[in-house]
Amino acid sequence: MKKGKSFYAFLIEHRELPLLAVLALLLAVVNVRVPGYLANSWLNVLKNGSINMVMCCGMLCVLLVGSIDISTTAVLAFAGAVAGKLMGLGVIQNTFLMFALGILIGAGIGAINGVLMSYGRVIALIVTLGTSYIVRALIPMNWLLGMNKVNPTQLTQAFKDSLINHELFGLPFLVWLAVIVVILTTLFLNYTRTGRNLYAVGSNAEAAQMRGVHLNKIRVLAHTICGASAGLAGIMWLAFYAAIEKGSATGDEMFTIAACVLGGVSVTGGYGKISGVVIGALMVAFIDSAIPQMQIGNSMITEFIKGILLLFAILLNVVLQRISAKQDLAGRNI
């Protein structure tokens, strides 16, 4: 009995463990169906998943304070389009400047979202829905891309090589960049006062306010971080795919949110761990890469299977958490 209690207590502490089990199960199934899948594709999963991973880190911060941001992919496309246009015009040639510019643009839009959401008291879903409409509509304006897109010839070779053709310990810089962002987010959320305040605001805003936390400032900060991560993701996108256009990544913000929820982040705020988010993001990237290779019917039913798997994983996660919570209560003899 005692042993059981500690096991379930452990499960409660680590809500992402059931998800890890689901991920392992899926991997096993796919590996049986497509022999050698893991050996062939692990690098592609990491590469394709890293842009989403970066956005997930920002989304985690926003979800933690009980807010949401569905303008991330619009910001991604906008930041990429502006930076790509400037590089095409020859204004910026330096790779680092590109990344700095992307982060700045993203942070700016994120901050606007945050201010409207906190000081303007407009619901986050509405604000970010509005900004995503606006920001995406700016891209085909004549002063930006017009009807053109950014294509490889407009980018410098150094920039195009920066993330894909440089490797460290066998992994391209693209993946390392995501790793760095994850580490920074972990440090920020777990070891700084401001980071802990994000959790405090999300789980109990009034209590946090009593303790002297400036609610609105924290909310604006969370949105700014989310915007910045989306801006960074835009430049990563530009460097990885060497192209960006008005419609880039449309609708993908939902997969960012899905990855966070899969990872056990609460959409009402206050709970969520970076480790869970990393697993969630990997899972989404894995589903994306595995389904076309499974050769189930034609490639058009990817969405169908993606939906079922997402639903299955999310619900299983909930059920497992419920069981562990019940066991926890039983263990306490209440």
Binding site: Y241, E245, S248, D288, S289
Partner: peptide, 21 residues
């Protein structure tokens, strides 16, 4: 035949799958 939906990423991912398959 695979379908990229005239989306850059979807076309990219489908190509990856083709190359591995």
């Amino acid at each position: 035949v695979v379908y990229g939906d005239d989306e850059y990423t979807k076309s990219f991912n489908e190509t990856q799958a083709l190359l591995e398959q």
